[in-house]
Computed example of a mutant assay.
Amino acid sequence: MRRCWFEWGWKTALRTEGYDGRLVLVGEEAAQPYDRPPLSKQVLLGKCESQDIALTDEDLRAVLDAEWLLGTRATALDPASGALTLADGRSLHTDGVVIATGARARTLPGMPRLRGVHTLRTLDDARRLREDLSRPGRVVVVGGASDTRCPSSSPNRSRCYVSWDPKPPAS
């Protein structure tokens, strides 16, 4: 687990520093936490799967002794009362909250959701894109991040034509 301390340090620190109360981890994705950089490289190429990029294992989950609410989005926080509202209508009452929101992939303004148009931020995104890349066709990669070109190296070069645009549209 390469980045375990960076990603999970505060969670394990709670336990190692003596906190033995209820610990609830809420996450919009259904998957256990994982290392994101391999999504645009190894996962798209089929060289690794979710268990290979996992940031937790049974031992760490045992140390955390946490309640996992995966596939559940937090929608509101009332700091005065400590109430955290979840998308499914449940409410958690807390003594403290750590907000670790991450980021979302940018989409083209006004663009409807179209078949064959992908963003790459989650494990599910990588799986859907890998499936589409397995078929012949043209691939255009739009974006200027330092790792944006990685998906362009993933399609089977004998079956896909790839072009890359480093300048995303102005938002």
Rank of each mutant, 00 (worst) to 15 (best):
M1W: 05
R2W: 03
R2A: 10
R3F: 14
G9R: 10
L14K: 04
R15V: 06
G18R: 08
Y19N: 08
L23M: 12
L25R: 01
L25P: 00
L25M: 13
G27P: 00
E28G: 10
E28K: 15
E29I: 03
Q32H: 07
Y34A: 07
L39H: 00
S40D: 05
S40K: 02
K41P: 01
Q42N: 05
L45V: 00
C48K: 11
S50G: 10
Q51H: 15
I53P: 06
L55K: 03
T56A: 10
D59R: 11
L60C: 02
L60K: 07
R61W: 03
A62S: 14
A62V: 02
L64C: 11
A66R: 00
E67I: 06
E67G: 07
W68P: 01
L69Q: 14
L70F: 13
G71D: 02
R73Y: 03
D78V: 07
A80T: 15
S81F: 05
A83C: 07
L84H: 06
T85V: 10
A87V: 00
G89T: 09
R90F: 03
S91H: 06
T94S: 15
V98S: 15
V98F: 13
T101W: 03
G102W: 12
A103L: 12
A103Y: 05
A105R: 04
R106C: 04
R106A: 14
R106M: 02
T107L: 08
P109L: 11
P112Y: 08
P112T: 10
P112Q: 09
G116I: 10
G116S: 07
V117A: 14
T119W: 04
T122A: 13
L123K: 10
R127S: 10
R130P: 01
E131I: 05
G137K: 08
R138L: 06
V140K: 00
V140Q: 01
V142Q: 01
T148L: 01
R149T: 00
Y161R: 10
W164Q: 07
D165H: 06
K167W: 04
K167E: 10
P169G: 07
